[in-house]
Nucleic acid binder design. Structure first.
Lengths: 152, 152
DNA sequence: GCGCAACTGCGAACGAGTCGCAAGAGCCAA
DNA sequence: TTGGCTCTTGCGACTCGTTCGCAGTTGCGC
């Protein structure tokens, strides 16, 4: 839990209340928060923390591999505390839910790129967009209701 | 080649020089151009074409499935004339080269999401970042030269 | 507790993209 | 060929996420 603080200190960075708080927010958030969300949460404790401080701190934490940045859909960046294994995301376009799946499923892609194209894969970003189980149920229910209505 | 124009007319949209030109630029560009690049290219013929016109036209072409939009890396959107099958991109972080690979390689991902997570996949966006064959050769050469230098 | 470099807050700026509006121009009908 | 209706355009101002420069503040080694 103190692992971020220790890392910061080890690398000669200062421990400030802002950095502490931003780190805690990320840890407690669970996963996938935008810089704005972090800022909002941080301000509940330290109201005067500036967005640029949040961005700078996130950048720092990313550079120290304590946090990973993901650009889902290219709209805004999302941050989360570094999870152990590489993983990818699927996002429900209805409710915004974000899920994970492992990198192992991309083995065929790694293979193809390496063997066929001589491409040295550094990083793969995958985002699947669609409907989560819960929203599918709702959609189906709505669809069924519409059908019933039509028949009546 | 007139297929875009025909589609526009069929759908009741007007054929303007700007739309014509933007479409031609996309066709001739081969692949993956940003809105800014399209605008720049268009302006070589019609200097007064506005960016918003470019954005609006691209949006229109996308909505008619004549063009696909891809958000590589979340930096800027790239546009290209609709290629037949769904495909994904790999981008050389050194030289910017963009390549394609088929959607079939993602079968395990589709499977996992559907079976394990009950997620109805609508669209998958994949971007692989790394080094293309040519840049790897250069890197290797540089590395080898450095080694030689070190040994001397 | 002192001093200095690292850090912060602020405000201005960025780049990509969007919007509202008035002027301009396709296209259809006469 | 000419209207004229309505779709398009150009313009400029705006948004949104993010970055930058700077002057003031503060953590922390001595």
């Amino acid at each position: 839990m103190h692992h971020a603080r220790a890392t910061l200190r080890e690398q000669g960075y200062r421990l400030t209340p802002q950095r502490n708080l931003i780190w805690e927010v990320l840890r407690d958030a669970g996963r996938h928060v935008t810089a704005e969300e972090v800022a909002a949460e941080v301000r509940r404790t330290l109201p005067d923390v500036n967005v640029s401080t949040v961005y700078r701190t996130l950048e720092l934490l990313v550079s120290l591999d304590l946090v990973v940045e993901t650009r889902l859909e290219g709209v805004a960046s999302y941050y989360e505390v570094s999870p152990e294994p590489t993983h990818h995301h699927f996002v429900c376009t209805q409710c915004g839910m974000v899920g994970h799946f492992g990198d192992g499923l991309l083995a065929p892609v790694h293979d193809e790129l390496t063997r066929r194209h001589g491409f040295a894969v550094g990083q793969i970003q995958v985002t699947a967009l669609g409907l989560c189980r819960a929203c599918r149920v709702v959609e189906d229910a709505v669809g069924a209701a519409a059908d019933t209505g039509r028949q009546a």
